[in-house]
């Protein structure tokens, strides 16, 4: 089981990091989700891998599983879920406003020259 969990965590992390390094927002978000899954599995295994053990004190239990990492994972899931929702909305708004889903700050972010606005320029770049 150790090998399964360890390789699973490793694979999720590798996929997450690869996608995160892409240049467009959607793969980045998927990569971040993979990364947060990897972390959740990783946190679980930090309490040691135990099967069929109770997490609370019971007189006839042969042993216990550590419940704290499970509480940590629950917190981490809630937070990463909220963050993912936020970043999806952010990416979508960014796409709708600029017409591009590039994750980097592109040319439109460069401060315009002094006279650009004054010359009654056309619509901002990236819009039809």
């Amino acid at each position: 089981m150790e090998i399964l969990v360890a390789s699973g965590t490793g694979l999720l992390t590798a996929v997450g990091i690869y996608l995160m390094l892409r240049g467009r927002t959607f793969p980045v978000i998927v990569g971040l989700s993979f990364l947060s899954y990897a972390v959740n599995v990783f946190l679980f295994s930090m309490g040691r891998l135990a099967i069929d053990r109770p997490p609370i004190i019971s007189p006839d239990a042969p042993g216990y599983t550590d419940p704290l990492p499970q509480a940590l994972v629950l917190t981490a899931i809630v937070i990463s879920f909220g963050m993912t929702a936020l970043i999806v909305v952010l990416a979508l708004r960014g796409f709708l406003e600029t017409g591009s889903d590039k994750a980097d700050l592109d040319a439109s972010s460069v401060p315009d020259g002094p006279g650009r606005r004054a010359e009654g320029e056309a619509a901002p770049r990236g819009r039809p």
């Binding site: 980045v28 937070i79 970043i87 952010l90 960014g94 406003e97 600029t98 980097d104 901002p124």
Partner: peptide
């Protein structure tokens, strides 16, 4: 709001998500 702020915001959120991980 504003387009540039959204772009910068995306990077900011993404970097902090990685940091949280």
């Amino acid at each position: 709001g504003g387009a540039q702020r959204l772009k910068a915001g995306f990077q900011y959120v993404a970097i902090n998500l990685v940091a949280s991980t």
